[in-house]
Amino acid sequence: MLNFSNSLIGILNLVTFLLSIPIIIAGIWLSKQGVTVCEHWLEKPAIAFGIFLLIVSIVGLIGACCRVSWLMWIYLFIMFLLILILFGCTIFAFVITNKGAGRVLSDKGFKEYRLGAYSNWLQNRVTGRTWKKIRSCLVASKYCSNFNKHHGQDNIAMFNKQKLSPVESGCCKPSNECGFTYISPTKWTKTRNVTLANPDCNAWNNDPNILCYNCQSCKAGFLQNIKKNWKKVSIVNIVFLIFLVVVFSIGCCAFKNNRNHNYYKGH
């Protein structure tokens, strides 16, 4: 009869094996159905992660249930690397998302965002070709079109009270500094004799495919959204990290059981 640690490792790896199958299927589905650059970008990580999870689960399952010591050693080595990588990524995420926050505007329900407020590493992620891909995703998702539908009937007083998301504030409307005249949430008139010291004011265009997608504020709003999501992911990572440490500890017991079993079997 298998020891408790071996049985537990076997059950855990059976569950992860079953979970890997829908992940791989989802990645393949995205590769067939994806239309935007964003959807095609997601397919490869999904398939790679699913295959990795599948292989590791099989190694752990065979190593624990069939008492194959060298497979358990490989399984534990992979788990140890995962713990180190996840720990490093979690610390890194907390460090680079420590800077940056929205600027509160008087008599406004929304905040505005400045690119320079964020870490240099994040700023470098939204330049050149990378930003072109991100911008194409934002346009293809009709983010600002939906924003206009939700607030299209608002007058300026109502609009100023809205709690806009970072991307809505940065990409779908001009900066408050520009002093443009409000017509609709995504349509503004450039007022004469208004100082355009902020380069985003010149970048603004009422074309639904342009708006403020080329603005620094749009990049800042996108980074703020990334920052919020990374904070949530980091919390999940901590929980997962604890889970991996527990599994690794159980795996060490299973590995020890395998060695003892094979030793007594050989004698």
Rank of each mutant, 00 (worst) to 15 (best):
R129S: 14
K99D: 11
T127D: 13
V59M: 11
I62A: 13
N98A: 14
R135C: 02
L61E: 01
Y118V: 00
V104A: 13
G109K: 10
F110R: 02
I91Q: 10
A64T: 05
Y118K: 01
D107N: 14
D107P: 01
I91H: 10
K108W: 10
R129T: 14
N124F: 03
V68D: 05
S69T: 15
G60I: 06
K99Q: 09
N120M: 08
G102C: 03
I134Y: 06
M79H: 04
R135A: 10
F92C: 01
L115A: 11
G128F: 04
S136E: 14
F110N: 01
A117G: 15
I62Q: 06
L122R: 02
G102M: 00
E112W: 01
L81I: 14
F80P: 00
R67Y: 09
Y113G: 02
C65A: 07
L76Q: 09
C89Q: 11
S119W: 03
G102W: 00
M72A: 10
F110D: 04
N120P: 08
A64G: 01
T90H: 09
Y113H: 07
L105R: 06
F94R: 09
N120G: 14
L105E: 12
K132F: 13
L122C: 10
V59N: 09
L71T: 13
C66I: 06
N120H: 12
L105A: 12
L82I: 12
F92H: 15
G109C: 08
T97L: 06
T90C: 15
L81A: 13
G63R: 13
C66G: 06
K111T: 11
C65D: 04
Q123S: 12
C66T: 08
D107F: 07
C65N: 11
E112F: 07
W70H: 09
E112A: 07
A101I: 05
A64P: 00
T130E: 07
L61D: 07
R129G: 11
G100D: 04
A101W: 04
F110M: 08
F110H: 04
V104G: 02
V104H: 06
M72I: 05
M72N: 07
E112L: 06
A101V: 11
M79C: 02
G63S: 12
C65E: 06
R67F: 03
A93G: 13
A93W: 08
S119N: 12
L86M: 13
C89E: 01
L86Q: 15
K133R: 10
L84I: 14
